[in-house]
Design a protein around this nucleic acid. Structure first.
Lengths: 150, 150
DNA sequence: CGCAGATTTCAGAGATCTCTGAAAGTTTAG
DNA sequence: CTAAACTTTCAGAGATCTCTGAAATCTGCG
């Protein structure tokens, strides 16, 4: 078993968004598979990589909430699958960056003084990210609500 | 002249968001300066880097619309400054990635078939990014409108 | 308790990316 | 047109990141 060409293309897109290459390929495998869940062995075979890389990838993907371990009674292997709302979760994670931008802008204003040319530029920056920080969660919640209500 | 500590911190945040280190530091210099504009020489001195790195950085920043060349009559040097709505522009640029995700998901559905387990996962993905693709531009336009109306 | 299968860790090889500095190119004043 | 000031390009050094594979660890069955 090997990753299909569309799966590789999707992995590449995730990589552009900042995800590690192998992590993205493992996620693509879990997204495209026709099975309900995949074991670490399945993933290594599909992606064509070492067990070590798969271990690192599932650790990272589990950490950000994109996939989950599935209890598999009677098997000694771990099973994984994508979580519900994985993409909304991924987007929410990006929100951490928005907060960071807001914070560094605030620190800059404090250091430079609001009434300097630099302070004015930083204020525009801070206001923009504060706006996003308020609106992005609403946007994502609306999506979840719309989806749940179908 | 050297980059202040808050400026370095801001550059680091931009780096986390995917911007090159030197590019981020040049942008931070233009953001924090008390001058109206800076020349390539100013930037090299402030950031403490080579002329080559500054050249690459301003090329990249100009390309994505974050800064602009300012005509400077009577000077043989180029002057740069941050553009208005730079942060909104940066955000709009990220939208390209949203579109890409939508497209690769669509290609996946076409390849896998909508009625397979993989196809269903891909459909959820496609729908989510299609939603963002519609909503993010609205969000940014609203910001611009609110800002212009002050 | 001990073993077999499965997973995780980690050091080092290899690949990739970034930065520098010098040479080439460009622009404007004289 | 020439020269001086400034900017851009680019090859290679250096730094950083990623992946592999083998050893160590873990898990659950007999």
């Amino acid at each position: 078993m090997v990753l299909s060409e569309p799966a590789e293309r999707l992995a590449l897109a995730l990589t552009e968004g900042g995800m590690q290459r192998m992590t993205a390929r493992v996620l693509a495998a879990l997204l495209f598979t026709d099975q309900e869940t995949m074991t670490a062995g399945d993933l290594a075979e599909t992606v064509g990589t070492s067990s070590g890389s798969v271990s690192a990838a599932v650790k990272s993907l589990t950490g950000v909430g994109l996939i989950e371990r599935v209890p598999a009674p009677g098997s000694r292997r771990e099973h994984f699958r994508m979580r519900e709302y994985a993409w909304a979760t991924l987007m929410s994670g990006q929100n951490r960056l928005v907060k960071l931008m807001m914070d560094v802008a605030d620190q800059g204003i404090a250091a430079a003084g609001a009434d300097t040319p630099g302070g004015r530029r930083l204020t525009e920056m801070r206001d923009f990210y504060a706006y996003l920080w308020q609106r992005l969660p609403e946007l994502i919640d609306n999506w979840k609500a719309a989806r749940a209500g179908r």
